[in-house]
């Protein structure tokens, strides 16, 4: 009987074996808890067909909920597209904005600075080399000892 119980619990028993098991369990005077559990399981009622399964119609509710999901999905995709456009635009605009300004870069004692006053000041003092760039007026050169009288 225990082998039949194991087979039943493994889901591989046939209908005939289950009926045999049911008969064997009903013949035992004193059942263990496990055997009583199996006996109860074998006596479970099958599902009943309900008439309303074929007659009821919730199509209107179904359509409404599907439409709601569709709108939510559309809003989500629109939001993602707008956010992506903003990020892309930001990435494209910022470097151009930096290039649009005149910038003078001077290397002073190995450190770069864009402070124009400082750059001009250093040009007036003494500089070993100056590298200046500008989008409107590119000046690239090396000035050595120009301010060194």
């Amino acid at each position: 009987m225990n082998k039949l119980i194991d087979k039943y619990l493994s889901g591989t028993s046939t209908r005939e074996e289950e009926q045999t098991l049911r008969r064997m369990l009903s013949a035992v005077a004193s059942l263990t808890p496990g055997q009583r559990a199996v006996q109860a399981m074998l006596q479970a009622e099958p599902m009943q067909a309900l008439p309303q399964w074929l007659t009821e119609d919730d199509s209107a509710t179904y359509d409404c909920i599907v439409e709601r999901h569709h709108r939510a999905s559309l809003w989500r995709r629109t939001g993602i597209a707008v956010a992506a456009s903003l990020v892309l635009g930001f990435l494209l605009v910022v470097p151009r904005g930096g290039e649009a300004e005149n910038c003078a870069v001077a290397t002073i004692y190995g450190q770069e600075t864009t402070d124009e006053a400082l750059v001009l000041g250093m040009m007036e003092n003494t500089m070993q080399s100056v590298l200046a760039c500008s989008t409107t007026d590119h000046i690239e050169g090396q000035l050595t000892d120009i301010l060194n009288p």
Partner: peptide
């Protein structure tokens, strides 16, 4: 129809 009813249920 049954499938839609099941969804709503």
């Amino acid at each position: 129809r049954v499938a839609r009813n099941v969804c709503v249920s």
